[in-house]
Design a protein around this nucleic acid. Structure first.
Lengths: 246, 246
DNA sequence: CTAGATAGTCTCAAGATGAGAATAACCGTG
DNA sequence: CACGGTTATTCTCATCTTGAGACTATCTAG
């Protein structure tokens, strides 16, 4: 049996299989100028040279997956390896990389507004791109990015993820801005305020207020910091789009 | 720079890196005898020979990931490759397999009550195990399994996943049984009934009823089939455990 | 100083949820 | 065949959550 023999070999010497490479790719998100931005690097070498791609690269011996993701993010973009990071998914379609079989584990990273990145070793350039005006990406990175955005929109509902996009302390309005930007819909200010304060552990008051009102007027607002909750109960549901069925 | 050189090599010849193997592992769940069961195989070879593990194995050249997961499930257990399957996560800690660097992409599979599996090529045995009385598993499969169970419990809330555990047609009570079994809590029959019928697209009536009442009495119940909804709105929330914060 | 914008509260109606109960159909048994 | 126990389905009612709109006080810009 051809299948059984392959299996047999696999158990005793996996190296007999054609080489498989494992990479990590990072979907790093931030909010700048009231728009959701994604970090992209311009590829400096073939294949897809000159095309934008997600920061990422091959894992190293002895290096754990999340560790590799942080390293790649730092290496290729100069971004502090301190951002919140979590696994997104694995991608392994046979032809996704023309060079060889490459399986990629993607990670999702969130950060408050950060400085412009510095292109690292093997990236010709690195820059934040508006999530709603993306260039065509290399490999299957377009799909990975789309999955990452969907995941982020989803997690905003039932986790305190939004607080990862703002500074150490923030106002309820800033937090609402995160939701409105990521979801792309305006929210009712009063109801949002009530909701955020009523979910246990979402935010906690610092007792302070902003130094001045907003740039277009309005009173000073109270400052909050992220609370201890890992999950929001009840969740902050995204306004339904009526097309729940499918 | 050692780092830059490694990176350079990686770009031009990833094969220069120590071999990395990629496997798929499957967390297959079903409900038998009112208890959640997981499919496990007894390893026939080293390492961890004789220990129970998740069905899985190395991916083959040209084979897509989900395809590999279905193949392994069928090969090692004789189970029809027709079950609903979805990706769980990637696992790649450096020491998770003593033989070499192995990165595993895990899949989650759901099926209605199925016959006992047949041990395949490289499994000494294959059997359904109660999810609440598991033996110690090989490698990091205990962690993968735990992640899979958590994912399943979660998805029951906002997707029609529960219908994958019952037959083509089913009663509301059977559906409730799925929730009670997976979540491990009793649910209010009346409220569950109201809820299921009120969520658009969750179930649709077949117009039929069961041939007879339940084995302990009670009237015949109406039969339903899975509806077209991909998401449940509003969701069927799992009873809170008060410890939302953390 | 005035107009316009915003933070934070409230009110009210509409939905959704949790608990308990009522009704009726069906089991196995005596 | 009548009876007790069990279960499917429907209702009621109090409570919670949500969505919309409105009001007040505070602040910026001009």
């Amino acid at each position: 049996m051809d299948e059984e023999e392959s299996e047999f070999l696999a158990r005793y010497d996996p190296r007999a299989f054609p080489a498989v490479a494992v990479t990590v790719d990072v979907v790093a998100l931030t909010i700048r100028a009231d728009a959701l931005h994604v970090l992209l690097v311009e590829r400096g070498s073939q294949p897809h040279a000159g095309r934008w791609a997600l920061p990422g690269g091959f894992i190293r011996p002895g290096e754990d997956l999340p560790e590799a993701a942080r390293r790649e993010l730092a290496e290729e973009t100069g971004l502090a390896p301190r951002v919140h990071i979590e696994q997104l998914a694995g991608y392994g379609a046979p032809e996704r990389d023309p060079r060889m079989r490459v399986v990629s584990i993607s990670y999702l990273a969130f950060a408050p507004d950060l400085p412009d990145p510095q292109a690292g070793s093997d990236a010709a350039d690195a820059a934040w791109h508006r999530a709603d005006r993306l260039p065509e990406l290399a490999f299957d990175h377009g799909r990975i990015l789309a999955d990452g955005l969907e995941r982020a929109r989803d997690k905003l509902q039932y986790t305190p993820l939004a607080t990862a996009f703002v500074g150490e302390t923030f106002t309820i309005s800033e937090l609402r801005g995160v939701y409105e930007t990521v979801w792309g819909v305006p929210l009712h200010a009063g109801n949002f305020h009530r909701k955020v304060l009523s979910v246990p552990g979402f935010v906690e008051s610092t007792g302070e207020t902003t130094e001045s009102g907003g740039r277009r007027g309005g009173p000073r607002s109270r400052l909050y910091r992220a609370g201890a909750a890992g999950l929001l109960h009840p969740a902050l549901l995204r306004p339904a789009k009526d097309e729940e069925t499918r």
